[in-house]
Design a protein around this nucleic acid. Sequence first.
DNA 1: GTTAGCACTCAATCCCAAGGAGTGCTAACA
DNA 2: TGTTAGCACTCCTTGGGATTGAGTGCTAAC
Lengths: 346, 346
Amino acid sequence: MQELDERKTKILNAIIRNYLDTGEPVGSRTISKYSDLNLSSATIRNEMSDLEELGYILQPHTSAGRIPSDKGYRFYVDNLMKEKNQEVTEMKEFMIEHTERMEQVLKQMAKVLAANTNYTAMITAPSYHRNKVKFLQLSQVDDKQLLAVIVTEGNLVKNKMISTREALDNETLLKLNILLNTSLNGLSAEEINLGTIARLKEQAGIHSNIVSDVLDALAGVFQEDEELEVYTSGTTNILKYPELNDSQKASELLNAFEEKKQLVTLVNETLASQEQTGIQVYIGDESPIQNMKDCSLVTATYQLGEGMQGTIGIIGPKRMDYENVMDNLKTLKSQLDAVFHKNKEQ
Amino acid sequence: MQELDERKTKILNAIIRNYLDTGEPVGSRTISKYSDLNLSSATIRNEMSDLEELGYILQPHTSAGRIPSDKGYRFYVDNLMKEKNQEVTEMKEFMIEHTERMEQVLKQMAKVLAANTNYTAMITAPSYHRNKVKFLQLSQVDDKQLLAVIVTEGNLVKNKMISTREALDNETLLKLNILLNTSLNGLSAEEINLGTIARLKEQAGIHSNIVSDVLDALAGVFQEDEELEVYTSGTTNILKYPELNDSQKASELLNAFEEKKQLVTLVNETLASQEQTGIQVYIGDESPIQNMKDCSLVTATYQLGEGMQGTIGIIGPKRMDYENVMDNLKTLKSQLDAVFHKNKEQ
DNA sequence: GTTAGCACTCAATCCCAAGGAGTGCTAACA
DNA sequence: TGTTAGCACTCCTTGGGATTGAGTGCTAAC
């Protein structure tokens, strides 16, 4: 038993596609005329009535046309979309300039995505959770300040100033550096446990307080990366869609974009429910973010290996052009994978 | 000869204050009732008629009340505002947590400002143009990568990866480090000229290409800081003011906030026309940014000494609460000065 | 110089009628 | 039995008065 026979499916498809285009409720006559079914509007009406009863479409009010319900969109996304193989050329060009600065690349990407789709794009820096220490160095910067530089496997560099009571002599510094590197290199956040720490401090002797500071810095590095950076672009695009452009909704949404914290929730959600290569689609209430209940949300995860990954997302009206969006995301995702991979090889 | 006698001044003041509150055109009767002038509405009308002729107020349409013109606001800001000595307590608390990460502090500040004023706040990181190199270090991170760490006088740290064909031995690395530090320390971007560069390369011998890379990185550091970081907060606050909340204007404004480039223009403008300790007020068309012609803009510059300075700005409707805004800015400005100063002393 | 009074203007609001898009239902048809 | 034409009905939208009310300008009197 299947809920929808072929004709109903076709009609539903036609309704949704039409609605994606126009944003207006679509009536039986429109479908009757502009589909290849050759059915009268009356027949369509009967079918539509069924579809409504089944929950795939709904009427904003009696005597209006029908619009897709969340269930309808879901069916569309899962079953009706054609795989398009659009060429996304521009991105590559954007990508190629300046690969060196990750942050720039990500911002650029967000921009391209937003421009390509006319929706809002968000993208997170890869979280290097479970990342490992690769290189660590203390330098005497001036009388009272040490600079700790930490490089991780993914070639991400962090620095932290450490204030000291007085300057260390070169020899001590060298010893400390050797000690730190031999003890910590190759370790991830989880692997640096109390045992490691105790041993380190013991060996550091009177400079154990410096070791403490370095470890704090290290913790800071690993932790700071939990609260990840989120870049958004095209936030104002949502104002283009009348169904979102009332000051109440728009304001809530824009706030969500500004308060990146909420987006982080989203990211975590996405990462949790990932089907690896998959692209996630959240329609209306399905979204983990309350404010987005009138929107749809398409997310993808990109990989860097070693447990590092980031999230890309597009936020738009429910009647978004899912095909185009998913296509863009797919291409971008693969390109990001490639860029970071290349970067690592280098 | 002065253009406005005392009574006209009082009336203008009353009109503006009332309009700041309500956002509605204000009529003669209102002024007559709610001011201490004890004049009939008819008299007020006559005066208002004069004020209109003089260009301080205007009518949206015949038979509406009056609203302040840009000239009116300007007069208000220059002559009518009372110095308030509001206590801004919250800020200090916010400030005290986590002084270590400048970026965080600035974001926090922007947030506080936006929350305090209900307008949009922007704040730029201090530009360390004409900043000097204080410490410089090359480290071998792995087989084929050197890490250059650069610390400037202001304790701002930058790093850059440099790819090499093969690993350098320790001795060479040490030599290079000494060479770089002795040659470049204490120099600002302008002071590193062709002569310096030539001398450096000569002394580096076969490793002159590495010196090149380091210099490139250095240039990058100095240059990157030209395109400064701008943090905004409360961008959606503009939606609260009906006069800005039509989708056309709102969208333009929000775009300006998203495209931080435009804000940078603003910053430069502010820096250029600074009267050192001064607070700058741009009303309507006076603003250097076209999109903001329906807004007012209040900016302040904070100092770090050594030619480093940043900008704080508040963007809101023309009828913004200038007193409150300027007060907030003043307090914040002084606190920022203090924080960074303290940070440097440390 | 100030004020009361009055006629006038004009945006905003409400109401109502007309229009139209779309539906559901029924009856007829193939 | 599925399809279709026809018709009554619903209800949003549009547009045109009419009404209201805030506010003005002007005049004449105090």
